[in-house]
Structures are given as C-alpha cells and as structure tokens.
Simulated assay, not measured.
Amino acid sequence: MTPALASALMPLMRGLDPEQAHNLALKALALGLAGADATPDDPVLATTALGLAFRNPIGLAAGFDKNAVAVAPLMRLGFGFVEPGTTTPRPQAGNPQPRLFRLVEDAAVINRMGMNNEGVEAFARRLAALRRPLPAVLGANIGINKEGADPERDYPALYRAVAPQADYVTINVSSPNTPGLRDLQGEAKLAAILAAVAATRAEQPHQPPVLVKIAPDLADDAVPALVETCVAHGVAGLIVSNTTIGRPASLRSAHKGETGGLSGQPLFEPSTALLRRVHGLAGGRLTLIGCGGVSNGAQAYAKIRAGAALVQFYAAFAYAGPALVGRVKQELAALLKRDGFAHLHEAVGADAR
C-alpha cells in the first residue's frame, strides 16, 4: 500500500469511534500497511537545527504515538522528525472514555486523554530496539504521572531513561489534561525542573538537547520570564505550542463544549501569534518548533516565516492521512523557491525582518 492509498481509506475510519480509529491506525502503521514515501526530498528543505541534520523540517507532534510502537513506519512516510510520547515514569490509564472528539466542521480535535501510556520502561525499550541508522530525527516527549509525581525527581529520571536513544528530549509542562501540569510553566517551578534536568544531562554519555513544550494560553506577562528561564538553564528550544483550552466563537461542531485540549485549524492563529512573540523575545537564543493548526504547505511556511526552524502537526495528519506529509513538503518547497530562498534556514523569521 502507498501513503496515497492509505489516505484514500481515511474516510472509512471516520465511521469508527475516534480513539478506536486511532488505535487501529497505529496498529496498521506498526505493521507497515501505510507503505512508504520513497520520493527524495527537495534539497531546499534540508536544514540544521538543535545541532542535528534534518532532511526536511516537517515533524509529527507528540501524542500520536504515545508508546513508540510505530516510530520507524512513521518515519518512512517522509517526516523529517518524529516525536513519540508523552511518556511518564509509570504506566497510567489516562482519563475515562470517551476522551477524544472529532470536530469535523472545524477541522479540529478535542482530547482529554490524560497522557495514557505504558510508562517509560516500555517506551525506552522500544526506542532501543529501533534499527539504526534511522531515516529521520527522533525526539522523545516526557511528562509526569497524574498521581505521585515529583517533577524535580521525575523529569531528570525520564531524561536519563530516554537520552541514550533520543536525538532530542521535550519536557511537556503544558498538557491541559493533567491537573497542575501547566502550573509548572511558572518561573520558579520551571527553573527548578530545568536545573535538575541540566544536572542529570551533564552526567550522561549522550546528551540530547532539551526542549520545552509550552501552552498557547500563557498569560502575556508570563511569556518573557518563561523564555529567559529556559535560556538561563541551557534549554535548546521551545515547541510553540500545545493544545488550547480556549474555545473560539467560530467553532460549529456539536462537540465544541467538550472539556480538554483543542487542536487543529482553530489553533493556527493563536499558536502562530505566540510563536511570533517568542521569536522576538528569544532573539535567536532558542530554536523554535512551530506546532498548531498546520494542514498545508502555506501554513508550514507561515510558521517558518514567524520564527520556526521546524514545524510539527498532528490533527491534520489524523484527518488527511499519510499522503499529507509529501503534499506539505512539496507545497513548502515551492513557496520557498517562489520567494527566492535557496535554503530553508534563510526563511526562518523572515516576517520579523
């Protein structure tokens, strides 16, 4: 099967419960049933960020493959990087079902999954079993359990567990579905976590760079302190952003009132506005990954021009299927060339200039 054929079958999946469809898709991917995209990437898309070489800047965001069960098949679809997780110290079931909702009219998703996953031991074991060299950059997204958590203990331990296998590690302090997690974005709490992670990182033979994934709902006056705290503690970059608890008035779906994080098209504007602001505050000191509402090459390009060195999506992939990856890359390459950019890095932050 090819990615295009797999995508053509996506409408059939929408007849299933969203979580059931997601689990079925993961199983199909793990079995290699989505095929692979052997089309070479346009050289204009190649870039270096976080000290790593990316064949293209398009990544799959955390949340799709929480347990790292389909990393290699996902990479073969043409992604430049894949970020499995969020993984936590211990397995946890997450929140009661139903907890995943399609907002089809809004090209959006609401989830309150609660970081359900099999725990970091299984996660790290699967990463270690991957056959190297990998066809794309490998991230790992880490978070804390809903119960019994000690952030200053748990994040360093998680980093230690995944560091031998990951190319970079993302600290998730912004999921809205774990009580108290977003409070860790506050200056003092975040500084304590990052200091503890930095101390652990210094002890590791392999020291993948650390990123922090932030919420789009941060108070305006909290953003400068967050940026400076990350810079001060050796963070390499920020992922801007996670899902939003906001509910735009434009939402039409019957599920718009469900509790949880909203992702997809309605997140594009607020996440890009925050990205633009963080780019200005960081002043080149942090590598930024733009995430939120990307469903085509024009939106990926907008993230890059706003300051993102790399771009991630998830909700659009869940709707459109594997063929989306190649389509976004093709459209992005055409836009870069149209505007006279010979290399992707030349376009990063172009709107600010």
Rank of each mutant, 00 (worst) to 15 (best):
K213Y: 11
V44Q: 02
L184P: 07
A320M: 06
L26E: 11
A124R: 08
A62M: 04
V294L: 02
R153G: 08
V109Y: 14
G59F: 04
P57A: 01
V69S: 12
L238A: 08
Y155D: 06
A163Y: 11
Q204E: 15
V212E: 06
N23A: 03
V162T: 05
H343Q: 12
I245V: 14
R247K: 13
G80I: 00
K213A: 05
P91E: 00
V197G: 08
A62G: 12
N172M: 00
T200Q: 15
R327E: 12
F81E: 08
E258M: 11
A4V: 01
L288E: 09
S241V: 05
S241P: 12
T88Y: 07
L184A: 00
L281G: 11
G257T: 13
E121Q: 10
M10T: 01
R276H: 15
Q265T: 12
P270E: 00
V162F: 10
G143M: 02
V231F: 04
G349I: 01
G94P: 10
A93M: 05
T287D: 15
F317I: 02
R126H: 14
A202V: 15
V82L: 11
G80A: 02
I171K: 10
A34L: 04
P270H: 02
T170R: 07
M1G: 13
D106N: 12
S253Y: 12
A166W: 07
L100H: 08
A166C: 04
D221A: 14
D106G: 10
A188M: 00
G51Y: 06
P270M: 00
D65E: 06
D217E: 05
E118Y: 01
Y314R: 08
M75W: 04
G85N: 01
I214E: 07
N117F: 01
A350C: 03
Q330T: 12
Q204K: 10
G237W: 15
K337E: 03
A107K: 15
R131Q: 13
R247N: 12
L332M: 07
G297S: 10
E147N: 04
L77K: 10
D37G: 02
L218D: 09
